[in-house]
Design a binder for these strands. Structure first.
Length: 835
DNA sequence: CTCCTTTGTCTTTTT
DNA sequence: GACAAAGGAG
C-alpha cells in the first residue's frame, strides 16, 4: 500500500497520528478508537517514507497483541517487509537483547528464565537455608517485596542498606541469597529480564548505541501499563533519535499491582519536551448507550487526562443490570441467556463473560457443562503450569542447562526412583560445600558422604539425561522426538498410567498438545531463521549468521514456553463462549458482554477497599470496570449475586458501588429485594446498604418470585422450591447476616466446617478440561463408543449410551446417567470416556 | 522412602 | 472449596 492508501478511511486525528513520524508523540487513544489501526498504518507509513523495516520497533504487552499487530502489518505490506519489523513484548525483546551480550554481565548466554512457581520454590529454599521461620516469612510476601524492590531498581545490596527493622533485615538476607542462587543457576526471573537490560545499557554504552541504531523508530502500545524499568528501557533506547511514539489510555491503566506507573503516561510531555499529543476520542466500537454508561462510571475518577469518548454509532439498547440471589443462580442465568441468544442468531463466540477473579469461572464452567455449551476459559490455570507439563519442561531444562538446580531437583525423583528427601539434602549439601551445581554433584555420587545405595539410583538418572543431551547435541532428534523420549524412556508415562484412568489420559493428552506446540514451533523457527538471515547484524553491516544446532533449538523452545501465556493460544474459529478475567479482556471486543459479580468486596475487590489508600486503589478498579464496559459492542449485561461462596465461606454481598454510580437512565436495573421499581441503590451508601438489602430479601420467594418471573419471560426457576429456600434463609441466612452487619462488615467469616470429601470440585476432578480442552471440537469425529457402552462424563459421572446420532456439526449422543438421568449432548464437547 | 492424612492459606488481577 | 505443605504411620 502506498501512503495515500494507508490514510484512506481514517479520521482526521488518526491521519495526523499516522503522518507524524519524527520526534516524541503521545497518542491518547480511548477504548475502541482504532488504536491498533493507527499503529499498524503508521508502521506502513514509516516504511513508505523510506524507513527500513528493521529500524522499527513495536512493543506490546502480550504476545497475542504482538501477533495481532504483526498480522495486521502483514495485510498492509509485503509479507517479507512486514516480518522484518521488530514486533515484540517487552520481555521477549529483552531476552533477545540479552542473548547477545549478557555475558558482559557475567552470565552465560544460555540463561534460563524462572517463572513465578520457580521463584516461589527458590525463595522458600532461601528461607530454609537461612534458618528463618517460614511462617514469619511467607514466600509470596517476600517475593512481592523483592519484586517491588526490583521494579524500583533497588538491588539486594542497597535494599540491605536501607532495611530498617528486624523483618526487613531478614528479608534483605533472603533477597541476597535469592539473587546469589539465581546467579549460580544462571537464571533470570521475569523482573531480571528487564533490569539486566537496563544494567547492560548503563554499563556498556556501546551496547546501548548498537540498539539505538537498530531501533530508530520506536512505538509502545498500552503505554499506561509500563513500569519504571520498562520506562527506563524505552527512554534509553529512544534517547538518541527521539523517535518515540507511545499509545495509551490513562483510563485503561489496570496493572498498578505489578508495578505499572501511570505517571509514565501522565507526565510524558514533561519527560519528552516538545512532544506532540494527539487524542483519539471517537469510538467505533460501542453503541451510544454503552459508551454513556462507561463514561458515567469513569468520570468518578480524579486526575485523569481530560477527554470524553463519543461515537456516531446508534443509540442501541440500554445496559441491563440484574441482581441474583446466589452466585449459582447468576451463573445459570447467564449461561442460559447466552445459549438462548446463540439460538436466536448471536453466535456464542460473539459473546463473552467477564469477571474480576479467576475463581468465579468455576461456577460458570459447571453450568456450561450442565447445559452442554461449548466454552473456553482464557487464563486461569496456565497450561504451562500444569504438573505434567512442568515436569516435562523441567526435564528439558535440565537437558539444556546443567546448572538449573531447581529443574533438576524437581525431576530427580519423577517418576519415582527411590531418591528421597534425605538423599536430595545430602547431594545439596555436597554441592554447596564444593561450590558446584546440583547436577554436577549428581555426576559423581560416589564422592558424596553417606549416599550409600542411592548412588546407583542417581546414576540411572544422570545416564538418562546424558543420553538425551547427546541426542539433541548431535542432531539425532527433533523436539518431538526428545519430548517423546522424556515421556517414554524415563518411565514417566508408565507412572502416569498408574493414576486413575481419566486423569492419566488427560495428562497424556496435554503432553501430546505440548508436542504439537513443539512441532509448530520448530517449523515457525525455521521460517524465522530464513527471514533473519537477510537482516543486518545490529551494530555492523554484516548479515546474521544463524548457526543451526540442536541446543539452540531447545533453548529457544524453552524460552518461548516461559514467555507465553495461555491467552496467546486462543483460536477464534470455533464457535464457543469465552470466559475470562477483566484483565485478560483488555484489547478485545465482543457483541455481547456479561460482566458478573458486580459486588462490593469482589469488584471493587476487598483488598482495594481496605487498602492504605482506598481512593487510589478503587480508582484502579473503576478503570477496570471501564475496560469491561467498553469491551461490548452492542449488549452489556451486568449482574451480581447477594450470596456467594468465597474462600470456602458463604458471604453476603452488597451491590457494587459501580452500579450505584450508574445513573438510573444509563442502565435498566433490576434488584431482587422489594423496592420500588426503577429506584436505584443510590442513597443507601455505606454499609447500611447491606442492611436494607438483607431485610429486603426476607420477602424472597413470595413477593418477588412472581414479579421477577415476568421480566424474564416467565421462565424463572428461582422460586422453584420456595419452602426450602425460606427455611434456609430463616435459619442460615438470618444469623449470618446479623453477623455480617454488626460484626466486621463484609468480610466476617461465617465458618462452615470442612466439607465432605465426596463432592469433589469440577476442576479437582478434571484439573485439565479447564482451558482449552478442544471445546467446540473443530473436526467432527466418530466417537469410540456406541449404544450399550458404559461411559464417564466429567460432571454427570457414569452412564449408559442409548443412542449415537450423526448431526450436522457433530455427533449427538444420548446417555442415561446413573444419577443424573437421561441427557443429550454433543460428542465433541461432552468428551465422554468409555469405561 | 512412600503414602496418606491433616493443616493452613488463599483470591485480585499477569508478563 | 482447592491446593500445597507439613506431619505421621508403615
Amino acid at each position: 500500500m502506498n501512503k495515500e492508501e494507508l490514510l484512506n478511511g481514517l479520521n482526521e486525528k488518526q491521519k495526523e497520528a499516522v503522518r507524524y513520524l519524527d520526534g516524541p508523540l503521545l497518542i491518547l487513544a480511548g477504548a475502541g478508537s482504532g488504536k491498533t489501526r493507527v499503529l499498524t498504518h503508521r508502521i506502513g507509513y514509516l516504511i513508505e517514507s523510506g524507513v527500513a523495516p528493521w529500524n522499527i520497533l513495536a512493543i506490546t504487552f502480550t504476545n497475542k497483541a504482538a501477533g495481532e499487530m504483526r498480522d495486521r502489518v502483514d495485510g498492509l505490506l509485503m509479507a517479507r517487509t512486514a516480518q522484518q519489523v521488530f514486533v515484540s513484548t517487552f520481555h521477549s525483546m529483552c531476552v533477545r537483547l540479552l542473548r547477545y551480550d549478557i555475558d558482559r554481565l557475567g552470565y552465560q548466554k544460555d540463561f534460563t528464565i524462572y517463572d513465578t512457581d520457580d521463584q516461589r520454590t527458590l525463595v522458600r529454599s532461601c528461607i530454609k537455608a537461612l534458618g528463618l521461620d517460614n511462617k514469619m516469612y511467607r514466600d509470596r510476601a517476600v517475593l512481592s517485596i523483592i519484586s517491588s524492590a526490583k521494579n524500583e531498581m533497588t538491588d539486594a545490596e542497597s535494599y540491605t542498606d536501607s532495611a530498617s527493622d528486624f523483618y526487613e533485615r531478614n528479608v534483605a538476607k533472603i533477597y541476597t541469597e535469592y539473587e546469589r542462587q539465581l546467579k549460580a543457576s544462571n537464571a533470570l526471573d521475569f523482573d531480571d529480564l528487564l533490569i539486566k537490560t537496563v544494567q547492560l545499557f548503563r554499563r556498556f554504552p556501546d551496547v546501548l548505541e548498537k540498539w539505538q541504531e537498530r531501533f530508530r523508530y520506536i512505538m509502545v502500545d498500552e503505554y499506561q501499563d509500563t513500569n519504571n524499568v520498562q520506562f527506563e528501557i524505552v527512554r534509553m533506547l529512544a534517547d538518541k533519535y527521539r523517535n518515540l511514539c507511545v499509545v495509551g489510555d490513562d483510563d485503561q491503566s489496570i496493572y498498578k499491582f505489578r508495578g505499572a506507573n501511570i505517571e509514565n503516561i501522565l507526565s510524558f510531555e514533561r519527560t519528552f519536551p516538545g512532544a506532540k499529543v494527539i487524542k483519539l476520542e471517537q469510538n467505533y466500537r460501542s453503541t451510544r448507550s454503552i459508551l454513556n454508561a462507561a463514561n458515567q462510571v469513569i468520570r468518578n475518577n480524579k486526575g485523569r487526562k481530560e477527554k470524553e469518548l463519543w461515537t456516531e454509532n446508534e443509540e442501541g439498547e440500554l445496559p441491563v443490570y440484574r441482581e441474583y440471589e446466589t452466585a449459582a443462580q447468576e451463573a445459570d442465568r447467564i449461561i442460559r441467556q447466552a445459549s438462548e441468544a446463540a439460538a436466536g442468531g448471536r453466535s456464542l463466540k460473539s459473546q463473552a463473560i467477564l469477571y474480576r477473579t479467576n475463581a468465579q469461572s468455576r461456577l460458570l464452567e459447571e453450568k456450561c457443562i450442565e447445559r452442554n455449551i461449548p466454552y473456553i476459559i482464557v487464563g486461569g490455570v496456565n497450561f504451562y503450569q500444569r504438573k505434567e507439563i512442568k515436569d516435562i519442561i523441567s526435564y528439558l531444562r535440565v537437558i539444556s542447562n546443567d546448572v538449573d538446580d531447581l529443574a533438576c531437583q524437581r525431576v530427580i525423583n519423577v517418576p519415582k526412583r527411590g531418591i528421597g528427601q534425605t538423599t536430595v539434602n545430602r547431594v545439596t549439601a555436597f554441592a554447596v560445600q564444593n561450590n558446584i551445581s546440583f547436577y554436577a554433584a549428581l555426576t559423581r555420587p560416589e564422592n558424596i558422604p553417606g549416599i550409600g545405595s542411592a548412588a546407583k539410583k542417581i546414576r540411572t538418572f544422570t545416564d538418562l539425561i546424558e543420553e538425551f543431551r547427546r541426542r539433541i547435541r548431535e542432531g539425532g532428534t527433533d523436539l518431538r522426538g526428545l519430548i517423546e523420549a522424556v515421556r517414554d524412556e524415563t518411565g514417566y508415562a508408565e507412572e502416569l498410567k498408574k493414576e486413575d484412568a481419566v486423569t492419566a489420559e488427560t495428562r497424556l493428552e496435554n503432553i501430546e498438545e505440548m508436542i504439537n506446540k513443539a512441532v509448530s514451533f520448530e517449523a515457525d523457527r525455521a521460517a524465522r531463521l530464513g527471514i533473519e538471515a537477510v537482516l543486518p547484524e545490529p551494530g555492523t553491516d554484516e548479515i546474521f549468521t544463524a548457526e543451526e544446532n540442536g541446543e539452540d533449538l531447545l533453548e529457544e523452545f524453552l524460552e518461548e514456553l516461559s514467555l507465553v501465556a495461555d491467552i496467546d493460544r486462543t483460536n477464534d474459529t470455533d464457535d464457543v463462549l469465552t470466559m475470562m478475567t477483566l484483565h485478560s479482556a483488555k484489547g478485545l471486543e465482543f457483541d455481547t458482554v456479561y460482566l458478573c459479580g458486580m459486588e462490593d468486596g469482589l469488584f471493587p475487590s476487598a483488598a482495594s477497599i481496605n487498602a492504605e489508600d482506598p481512593e487510589a486503589e478503587i480508582e484502579e478498579e473503576r478503570r477496570l470496570c471501564y475496560v469491561g464496559f467498553t469491551r461490548a459492542r452492542k449488549w452489556l449485561n451486568l449482574s451480581s449475586a447477594k450470596e456467594r461462596m468465597v474462600n470456602g465461606e458463604t458471604r453476603y454481598m452488597k451491590v457494587s458501588r459501580f452500579i450505584d454510580e450508574l445513573p438510573d437512565d444509563a442502565a435498566e436495573k433490576h434488584f431482587r429485594s422489594k423496592r420500588n421499581a426503577g429506584e436505584s441503590f443510590r442513597g443507601f451508601g455505606g454499609y447500611e446498604g447491606r442492611m436494607e438489602h438483607s431485610l429486603g430479601s426476607t420477602s424472597f420467594g413470595s413477593s418477588y418470585g412472581s414479579s421477577y418471573a415476568s421480566s424474564y419471560g416467565g421462565r424463572d426457576d428461582f422460586g422453584s422450591r420456595p419452602g426450602d429456600r425460606e427455611a434456609y434463609n430463616a435459619y442460615n441466612g438470618f444469623s449470618s447476616r446479623m453477623i455480617g452487619n454488626f460484626g466486621s462488615l463484609d468480610r466476617t467469616p461465617v465458618r462452615s466446617g470442612r466439607g465432605s470429601k465426596g463432592a469433589k470440585g469440577l476442576s479437582g476432578l478434571s484439573g485439565i478440561s479447564k482451558g482449552f480442552g478442544n471445546a467446540g471440537g473443530a473436526v467432527k469425529q466418530k466417537p469410540d463408543y456406541g449404544p450399550g457402552d458404559r461411559v464417564l462424563h466429567i460432571k454427570f459421572g457414569t452412564g449408559t449410551v442409548e443412542e449415537v446420532k450423526e448431526g450436522a456439526k457433530d455427533y449427538e449422543v444420548t446417555v442415561d446417567f446413573d444419577t443424573a438421568g437421561r441427557k443429550r449432548m454433543f460428542a465433541g464437547f461432552a468428551k465422554l470416556k468409555k469405561v
